[in-house]
Write a protein that binds this DNA or RNA. Structure first.
Lengths: 337, 337
DNA sequence: CTGAAAGCGCTAACAG
DNA sequence: CTGTTAGCGCTTTCAG
């Protein structure tokens, strides 16, 4: 029924190993033989059996990818990670197996120990992620999207959130703003210690200090009511406020509304910068100057890193992608009275 | 390094085949032997090698799942499909391989022909989907989420969109409404012939006719401007309008705004029913009476259907999930003047 | 109820 | 540059 390597070998008048080598390129094959083999492959429609290949080579050419699904995560962004990872994996002739967060450590162990996959991609890594000890003991390389407290022995990649925080402040400083505020992620995010939230705060604060700016930080629940409260408090505490950085995509719109209701025009009275997906930044009533999460790039890079680790070229332990700030309509030079 | 079946056999004092059978249950094993084998398995931490198993049994225990990613699809809904399918697959001891739409037919052929997967799940099926002929020729079962024009020889599952359209109208009819309008999906959806849009229209129209109601249908672009235009036209053409069905999740909010600006209070002056994800229906300013896409249920059922097909119990060609209407605050009894 | 042995289809030494 | 051959680790006949 299905054609196998011996069929191709016979058809091309060569040995099975020659067919194998002609296809893998793992040893020199004369142009002529290779051509005959390739012709036979095409003619017979030969496809190597994945299981047999995996058994003989101890390489499945499959990567595992764990996708998070709990509340508070941005699903479209996760999907971008996933799709770009799959696309990148295909470029290396690999496929991607989908695991849910729910499967937990047992799932990771299972796919690794059964040799179902050659390597693992783990998204949404926590500061003290219970999966880390396990990943370190697995005989297969893995790459984490996010940053744990103790990345030793692991390969991590993420957006450079600290620099992102700095960049927002520098942008505002360059426009003459002197008093700025950060409206941060919901408390859950800090509690979960997904770490990126803290890193933004650090960047924000240090850049403000460096520029001699007055600054405050306000974590904020993801509800419209909380948004209004925070906006009011911000203005009460810093009446001279002319610039804000928002790192809370769920309440961008309510916040903008709140500021307008408080009599602040954007960007005339108040410049706003955000850390959020581009799709959000561009579809709000006021296009937002923002730094996007380069999900596609992260997914792709994660696969590159894995491949490097599998090729013996050890990848750097830590990869921080440079944030890029896109200026849109929500920031302007401070009007000096 | 890794423990194999012969190790377990030696440790338990039985033959490899006995270990295999003890684990698969494919032939009777004395309780005593089974217990010894299981103890050895646990003690040694034995995990059968996936590739070897696939080769010997010609079953990979992996399903392929193609996820769509083009514009206009609701990403969170897709993710719900995916996650529930993975969860369901795990219950059958199967894993799920992720394929992108982009890989197209070649991707499907590849994973099937290399025996990487045992079966396929294809989402976002078009009326005249180019993948259908291919799927029919594959030696592996597949299940489609969505309905093509010619489902012969294939297994399909989807929400019963026709009945969903009817249900919305019946609900409005029951509340005394006599003049209703359907605001449909963006033109792209109709052009792409994803078929579910047409099915909603059919249900809507026939239910309206059956109830002696006056009705009109308006496809609508997914832009706020288009939403306003449609709302105005609806009222111009049907001044007595008191009920609308919206099947266009992207512009739900703009539409509601538009109606309010036109002086219609919801639900006092106008009752609104929608076909949209529950998360949307409940987070709008006015909680919407709506019919949800039961994504999780569809994903799960899709896997059940596949398993049936693989077990020889042929699954029904067509499975239509019954829509459920949830009454929230956007519909009310018509106020008769 | 259990064992022995023959592959599953491919890769990678090992030979030449 | 090519062929021969020995497995990879498991399942499943075939025997008993």
């Amino acid at each position: 029924m299905t054609v196998k390597i011996t069929d191709v070998a016979r058809h091309a008048g060569v040995s099975p190993s020659t067919v194998s080598y002609a296809l893998s390129g793992k040893r020199p094959i004369s142009a002529e033989t290779r051509a005959r083999v390739e012709a036979s492959v095409r003619e017979l429609g030969y496809r190597p059996h994945a299981g047999a290949r995996a058994l003989a080579s101890s390489k499945s050419n499959v990567l595992a990818m764990v996708v998070p699904l709990r509340a508070g995560i941005n699903v479209p962004v996760v999907m971008q990670f996933a799709v770009s990872a799959v696309t990148a994996a295909r470029a290396y002739d690999h496929d991607v197996l989908l695991l849910t967060q729910e499967e937990g450590e047992e799932g990771l162990r299972r796919v690794a120990d059964t040799a179902l996959v050659d390597a693992l991609i783990v998204m949404d890594v926590q500061l003290h992620d219970p999966r880390l000890p396990l990943l370190r003991t697995l005989d297969r390389p893995s790459v984490l999207i996010g940053f744990p407290a103790e990345p030793a022995g692991l390969t991590c990649i993420d957006l450079d959130f600290r620099t992102a925080g700095e960049l927002c402040v520098e942008h505002l400083a360059g426009l003459g703003h002197r008093v700025v505020g950060l409206i941060g992620s919901p408390p859950e995010v800090y509690v979960r210690q997904t770490s990126f939230a803290q890193r933004v705060v650090q960047g924000f604060t240090s850049a403000a200090t460096r520029n001699g700016m007055s600054s405050t930080v306000h974590p904020c629940e993801a509800t419209p009511a909380a948004a209004r409260t925070v906006a009011e408090r911000l203005l009460r505490e810093q009446p001279a406020l002319t610039g804000v950085v928002i790192h809370n995509e769920a309440i961008l719109e309510p916040l903008l509304d709140a500021f307008e209701h408080l009599g602040l025009r954007i960007p005339t009275d108040l410049s706003v910068t955000a850390l959020c997906p581009d799709t959000l930044a561009t579809t709000l009533p006021i296009p937002l100057t923002s730094i996007a999460i380069p999900a596609a790039e992260i997914g792709e890079q994660a696969v590159h890193l894995l491949m490097r680790n599998m090729n013996g070229t050890p990848a750097p332990q830590t990869t921080l992608l440079p944030p890029r700030l896109t200026v849109r309509g929500s920031t302007a030079r401070r009007v000096t009275g």
